[in-house]
Simulated scan of single mutants.
Amino acid sequence: MAEPPIRWIQGQRVEGHGVASGRDPGSPYPAGTISLQSPRFAEQGLDLSDCFAGTLNLSLAPLELRSEHPDHCFERLAWTDRHPPETFRFWRVLVRHGDCAPQAGWIYQPDPDTKLCHDQPAAVVEVLAPFLPGLEPGASISLGVDPERLWTIDGARLRARLLEFFKFRVLAAQDTFFRDFRVPHSGALDPSQLRAWLQTAWPEALALSDRDLRLCCERAWQLYGP
């Protein structure tokens, strides 16, 4: 079976919260969250023993990473008693710095819908890899990815254009505009129904996440609704 093609995505190292590695003196996890989570991942079939027990934070700004079909997905993993279980997704990647040979690593993606604190900016990707010495903030790092499962978008531009796209429709229809996209009784926005409409109305917006779509709808309602 042929290996999938590799696309290289350029990023820059940025400082993280220091919670994953335990560097933050105010963290409730002195050993670091990765050290606590890794044994649970190993139980589920993912061995991270060759990786540094902390995340490498890469900014892809102004781009944002989009992903599907992870190599591993651990749903509602209970790894601490300090907050409810979290969902984690992993993608195998290559990590390249300067003239050094690429090393195998993982994109580490806690699901933002289950992560209660320490949210990352939309343009930042967390990576687990062997220790790479001499990486100062701003250092250039490349990720070798499967482009069928990992790709980048200009999220800020798409969100701004979607908000503008909503503007005159909300002004014209007012409270009836979002009615067809809401769940009966609860009134919550149903992203699947909104996506079905966008497929015909403006398919470019489908590159945005469900979370982005919800936030754009809420913002449009605040700005232009009754």
Score class of each variant (00 low, 15 high):
residue 104 A to V: 14
residue 41 F to E: 12
residue 139 A to F: 02
residue 52 F to V: 10
residue 91 W to L: 01
residue 17 H to L: 11
residue 216 C to L: 09
residue 195 R to V: 03
residue 67 S to M: 14
residue 10 Q to I: 06
residue 98 G to I: 05
residue 152 T to N: 00
residue 64 E to D: 15
residue 10 Q to W: 05
residue 105 G to V: 05
residue 84 P to N: 07
residue 66 R to Y: 02
residue 214 R to L: 14
residue 51 C to H: 08
residue 64 E to S: 15
residue 164 E to V: 12
residue 182 R to W: 03
residue 107 I to T: 02
residue 68 E to F: 06
residue 149 R to C: 09
residue 179 R to W: 10
residue 26 G to R: 13
residue 138 G to C: 04
residue 212 D to I: 00
residue 9 I to M: 05
residue 23 R to P: 04
residue 33 T to G: 01
residue 133 P to G: 09
residue 116 L to N: 11
residue 181 F to R: 04
residue 1 M to K: 15
residue 66 R to Q: 10
residue 208 L to W: 01
residue 132 L to G: 08
residue 93 V to G: 01
residue 72 H to I: 06
residue 12 Q to H: 13
residue 173 A to M: 15
residue 51 C to I: 10
residue 3 E to Y: 13
residue 179 R to A: 14
residue 15 E to H: 09
residue 189 L to M: 07
residue 21 S to F: 08
residue 12 Q to P: 01
residue 39 P to Y: 11
residue 84 P to H: 09
residue 20 A to L: 08
residue 80 T to H: 04
residue 117 C to A: 14
residue 181 F to E: 03
residue 60 L to M: 08
residue 82 R to Y: 11
residue 127 V to L: 09
residue 68 E to M: 12
residue 131 F to D: 15
residue 225 G to Y: 07
residue 37 Q to W: 07
residue 79 W to V: 04
residue 86 E to Y: 06
residue 113 D to V: 10
residue 163 L to I: 15
residue 60 L to I: 00
residue 19 V to E: 12
residue 153 I to N: 00
residue 27 S to A: 12
residue 194 L to A: 05
residue 167 K to W: 08
residue 118 H to T: 07
residue 159 R to N: 12
residue 181 F to Y: 13
residue 16 G to R: 04
residue 192 S to D: 15
residue 207 A to W: 00
residue 145 V to S: 04
residue 175 D to K: 13
residue 85 P to L: 09
residue 148 E to W: 11
residue 18 G to C: 08
residue 184 P to R: 09
residue 53 A to R: 15
residue 178 F to G: 01
residue 209 S to Y: 01
residue 93 V to R: 01
residue 200 T to G: 14
residue 36 L to T: 06
residue 120 Q to Y: 11
residue 96 R to K: 14
residue 27 S to R: 05
residue 140 S to C: 14
residue 87 T to W: 07
residue 43 E to F: 09
residue 151 W to L: 00
residue 211 R to Q: 11
residue 87 T to R: 07
residue 88 F to I: 07
residue 45 G to V: 05
residue 102 P to M: 08
residue 184 P to A: 09
residue 55 T to Y: 03
residue 126 E to I: 07
residue 149 R to P: 03
residue 120 Q to K: 11
residue 169 R to D: 09
residue 196 A to G: 10
residue 135 L to Y: 10
residue 206 L to N: 02
residue 37 Q to Y: 05
residue 77 L to Q: 08
residue 145 V to T: 10
residue 48 L to E: 06
residue 152 T to D: 00
residue 156 A to S: 11
residue 43 E to A: 14
residue 153 I to D: 00
residue 112 P to G: 04
residue 202 W to K: 07
residue 219 R to E: 15
residue 6 I to V: 14
residue 200 T to H: 14
residue 127 V to N: 04
residue 48 L to G: 07
residue 221 W to N: 13
residue 9 I to T: 04
residue 26 G to S: 11
residue 139 A to M: 03
residue 122 A to M: 01
residue 75 E to Y: 13
residue 130 P to R: 10
residue 175 D to F: 10
residue 205 A to D: 01
residue 23 R to S: 15
residue 81 D to A: 14
residue 125 V to A: 03
residue 42 A to C: 12
residue 55 T to Q: 12
residue 212 D to W: 00
residue 148 E to V: 11
residue 6 I to M: 10
residue 179 R to I: 05
residue 61 A to E: 08
residue 81 D to E: 15
residue 214 R to W: 07
